[in-house]
Write a protein that binds this DNA or RNA. Structure first.
Length: 112
DNA sequence: AGTATGACAGTCA
DNA sequence: CTGACTGCCATAC
């Protein structure tokens, strides 16, 4: 079962590296994994990781900067609250100034 | 091995 | 712009 996730584990590793006040998208993560078409897998991975406190899944949103997965957290505005706690403004389930808050592992990790 | 699902993304009507 | 379908990849049953 959830032992040799492989793909999942990669997603967790990336999401965990998301810095404070930054967010990323499924497509970006999928692209970093080498499979930009498997953005759905990223979402599914986070679905399993959402139970893991070490994975800030609330920093992962869809390409539009919309908190698509907020419903998976608590069914409430928990995800929004978490983001707002990181100086990320959220309105109507969408991140404000999203483009300025995107964190690209491909770019950031490469520079390190 | 085949079918179904998934917190997406992109395209078409 | 909104709604619906397809594509693509990996996991679960």
């Amino acid at each position: 079962m959830m032992n040799e996730e492989g793909f999942f584990e990669k997603v967790y590793k990336i999401v965990k590296q998301i810095p404070y006040g930054k967010v990323t998208t499924y497509g970006i993560i999928a692209n970093y994994l080498g499979t930009p078409r498997s953005a759905r897998m990223v979402g599914w991975a986070l679905n399993a990781s959402r139970i893991d406190n070490t994975v800030p899944a609330h920093r992962v949103v869809n390409k539009n900067g919309i908190l698509t997965g907020k419903h998976h957290f608590n069914g409430t505005n928990l995800m929004k609250q978490l983001l707002e706690n990181e100086d990320i403004m959220v309105s109507n389930n969408q991140i404000i100034d999203f483009e300025n808050k995107i964190w690209n592992p491909l770019k950031e990790l490469r520079s390190q």
